[in-house]
């Protein structure tokens, strides 16, 4: 049975323009009292290596001509970073963040190599079981 109060998000991309919607949509889940399960894989996971979140400054290749303009307005308007937005949402709500085991193995990364916001390293089977129970599943 899928639960409308649960949302699962796969984070594949590790660029600022994708990580922003992840943190904002997760915040929307918190506002609506949803449980949010976030599965970080490939480039999405690499953005959560220790010390990385605040360094990420790349924009998706398709929109790279917008990168300087985007970084400029974010800075000029003092917009909270995607990472601070995610930390705040996790502090206020029921958000669980998982690292994809396959990606972690591929790059020889263990739990200690990630920011503490990452709760656990799990396999795809376990995450898809969560997605199966979620009314909403997104791939970003």
């Amino acid at each position: 049975m899928s639960d409308k109060n649960r949302m699962s998000i796969v984070v594949f991309d590790g660029t600022v323009d994708k990580l922003f919607p992840v943190s904002i949509i997760a915040s929307g889940g918190v506002m609506n009292d949803m449980r949010v399960d976030i599965f970080l894989t490939f480039w999405g996971l690499l953005a959560f290596r220790k010390g990385e979140p605040y360094k990420v400054s790349k924009v998706s290749k398709d929109y790279e001509e917008w990168a300087p303009e985007m970084m400029r307005v974010l800075q000029e308007k003092k917009v909270s970073s995607w990472y601070d937005t995610l930390l705040q949402a996790k502090e206020l709500g029921d958000i669980h963040i998982y690292a994809c085991a396959m990606t972690a193995d591929l790059f020889d990364l263990g739990k200690e190599d990630f920011e503490p916001v990452v709760d656990e390293i799990i396999g795809v089977g376990e995450f898809i079981a969560m997605a199966q129970e979620s009314g909403t599943t997104l791939y970003i």
Binding site: G28, K77, K78, V79
Partner: peptide, 14 residues
Amino acid sequence: RGSFCPGPMMELIR
């Protein structure tokens, strides 16, 4: 003021 969505909403929840 000056904070962007979802900032004010999250601040209010807190």
